[in-house]
């Protein structure tokens, strides 16, 4: 009875359903194809000639055996690790402070926080590049192009997302539980650590995963703020080599690593959030935010 009425309730018109399915396939096809060719038996990246893992490992040209690839992999992971930690810590602190701002400063602060998110990435990258290269006063003078500048650039961008996610969580929670902790004898620090941080944990984890996924994927900022060949990330390597003639399916393997890590990070964020908030009866809109930013 119930399944019947459910089916009747949201029956899609057939043309619309076909359109949706077509869109799904269109979305997945290029990515799946690119990933599949990393397992091709020959050098071709367009003609399927049998299954093999040779482009992943085993030969000098394989992804995990070639210095060029592993350097890019390593550098990307390093950048992602640093960006994740720094932007999560900074973003959490910023969110805590920003939600406590009252009065006239509230609107301008919220607006300025959004600037890195709404500015075209290219503008942000160029701006950062120029600041770090030509401004000779602290702190611009100490950040050198290469890894330090790349991390600073990525954090500048991701911290805004972390703030938005955590601020949303704080808004959902309200200050009732913190007040309850104070009422029951906890000092201000104890209330913050025992109650607020504990409750913010899911959002903090989500923020971390989003930062990670962004960092791994990022091209523009990372490219602009790089120095030499030791600061080439996966996306940078792909961009420089993907259209060249001398490429192998190892490049597809590299791309596969990129896609899978990003997807894993986002999936993990969503799962962790659900797991950590499973005892809360209050539905929250943070999962919605995650879906949007992913």
């Amino acid at each position: 009875m119930t399944t019947d009425s459910k089916r009747k309730g949201i029956r899609l018109p057939r043309p619309l359903a076909i359109f949706v399915w077509a869109y799904m396939v269109w979305n997945l096809l290029p990515v799946v194809a690119a990933m599949a060719f990393s397992f091709n038996a020959t050098r071709s990246r367009s003609q399927w000639q049998g299954f093999s893992t040779q482009w992943w490992s085993g030969t000098p040209l394989s992804l995990f055996d070639n210095e060029e690839y592993t350097a890019a992999l390593k550098h990307s992971l390093e950048l992602a690790a640093m960006t994740t930690v720094i932007s999560t810590v900074l973003g959490t602190l910023l969110a805590l402070v920003v939600t406590r701002i009252r009065g006239v400063a509230k609107r301008p602060v919220n607006f300025i926080l959004m600037i890195p998110i709404v500015t075209p990435e290219l503008i942000l990258a160029v701006g950062l590049y120029l600041s770090l290269t030509f401004i000779t006063v602290w702190p611009f003078s100490v950040v050198e192009l290469g890894t330090p500048a790349q991390v600073v650039g990525q954090v500048t961008y991701t911290v805004g997302f972390v703030v938005v996610i955590i601020r949303g969580r704080i808004a959902v929670l309200g200050d009732g539980l913190e007040a309850a902790a104070r009422d029951l004898g906890a000092g201000p620090i104890a209330a913050l650590v025992l109650v607020l941080f504990r409750l913010l944990m899911p959002a903090v984890l989500v923020g971390a995963m989003i930062s990670f996924a962004f960092s791994i994927d990022n091209f523009v900022i990372t490219q602009y703020l790089s120095s030499d060949s030791s600061t080439v990330s996966i996306p940078m390597y792909l961009y420089t080599n993907a259209r060249g003639g001398n490429t192998t399916p190892a490049l597809n393997a590299l791309a596969t690593v990129l896609v899978v890590t990003t997807l894993l990070a986002v999936a993990l964020a969503s799962l962790l959030y659900r797991w950590a908030t499973r005892r809360e009866s209050v539905a929250s809109d943070v999962t919605g935010t995650v879906a949007l930013s992913a």
Partner: peptide, 10 residues
């Protein structure tokens, strides 16, 4: 205090 929305730690 007994809070209006209970404010129990979930």
């Amino acid at each position: 205090t007994v809070f209006q929305n209970y404010a129990l730690f979930p």
